[in-house]
Write a protein that binds this DNA or RNA. Structure first.
Lengths: 227, 227
DNA sequence: ACCTGAACACCGTTCAAGT
DNA sequence: ACCTGAACACCGTTCAAGT
């Protein structure tokens, strides 16, 4: 009788870097950042924990590889845009959508500065900044400003996802209790925070995110200030 | 003989939340984020690991409390500024200086969205945004844009500090190897990244950070686009 | 070349027991 | 009220040993 030919054991389809990364993404999506564990990964791949190290340097490597796969797909999906402004918005929205689908993404991006995933985003932003007519010497600062803003939002959203998950709350209740805390702050020391506390409850993450992008793009187009 | 009066045992000065937080900051400054451990903390305070839990809820609580102490001090030190623009720059520089002195700060801020440390910064930024004459409905977006940009930079800087420490490299060599990687990227896929790779080597973190702030401020002052 | 899985050196957190 | 420290349930990573 032939063994393992007519009915090959599916699980043993031989480990590869890509299957490991895909499984890592599935694990992260299902259980959050704390769900990515070499043991859990090994169990899902029905192999030993140490086997993974043959294809992956360490956990950081795996984490940023997972984020790179997600970002690369998001960048492919982002439409080019008719105008540079639209192109920038499209890239930003693609990242935002990816963050929404993979709440751990922001944390991964924050941990891999200058690595492939963030460079992919910077590349796309930079090209549009150039198309916008920003002079050469200012393109670096402009593209980085967009990227850093985007990473700032990512990081906060990622942390919110972790905290909400930890507290077992859904988003709405989570924001409600945050707004309540803000409005209980000392009136002398925190007038602004108290004033905007209400907006926390009603605001739309995506809208505000885009409004911030537009703000920065407007700054890039403004006539030079100073000398 | 009187015991512990003429010569009281310094270490036993009784645990308090504040001494725990100060010791945590010292530990973080000395050994980075991975240096903050309940066991290491207990050793420095010459107490048991479990004792700390009487004054602190858990490690997250401790980490954000440490960052809050640092941010509160930074906000106190930030000069008011003669103009709103100068005030915003002053706040940004104060945070940047704190990040420089405490490279773990960015990571802590990223993990505590909407908590006291970030609200302190938002408060200061928001007041200046208001003073700048930004209309009420747009103050939230404007202040958040500044904060998110600032948090994005913080996070990247914090991660760079960790990575450089891990690789045992100083900043210059670290950026050099990053620039080298960028200029080795595929010419078709990464034209922009290759073009700006050189700037990685020569750029001044602080200058670029401030230039980004100015960009956003300019965007806030620009006449409304769109309808 | 690739995989196994026990072992090592850690973690955060809890909790009975002490004072 | 506050502290002790052993114990629990985990981690990432390594490495001899297998195929």
């Amino acid at each position: 009788m032939l063994k393992n030919v007519a009915n090959p054991p599916r699980r043993a389809a031989s480990l590869s870097r890509d299957t490991i990364i895909d499984t890592a993404i599935a694990l992260l999506d299902a259980d959050g950042e704390s769900g990515l564990t070499f043991r859990a990964l090994a169990a899902r791949l029905s192999t030993g924990a140490g086997a993974i190290y043959w294809h992956v340097a360490n956990k950081d490597d795996l984490f940023t590889a997972a984020s790179d796969a997600v970002v690369a797909r998001a960048m492919e999906d982002a439409p080019a845009g008719d105008t540079p402004q639209a192109g920038i918005r499209a890239v930003a929205l693609a990242v935002f959508a990816a963050m929404d689908a993979h709440p751990w993404l922001g944390s991964a991006l924050s941990r891999a500065p200058g690595q492939l995933p963030t460079v992919r985003i910077l590349e796309r932003l930079g090209r549009q900044v150039e198309a916008l007519g920003v002079p050469h010497e200012k393109q670096w600062v402009a593209a980085c400003a967009l990227l850093n803003y985007l990473l700032g939002v990512s990081g906060q959203n990622a942390a919110n996802a972790v905290n909400a998950r930890g507290a077992g709350l859904e988003r709405a209740h989570f924001l409600d209790s945050m707004a309540a805390t803000w409005s209980r702050l000392d009136a002398q020391a925190f007038p602004f925070a108290r004033k905007v506390a209400g907006q926390l409850r009603t605001h739309d993450d995506r809208e505000d995110f885009l409004a911030g992008i537009d703000l920065i793009v407007q700054g890039m187009q403004a006539p030079q200030a100073g000398c």
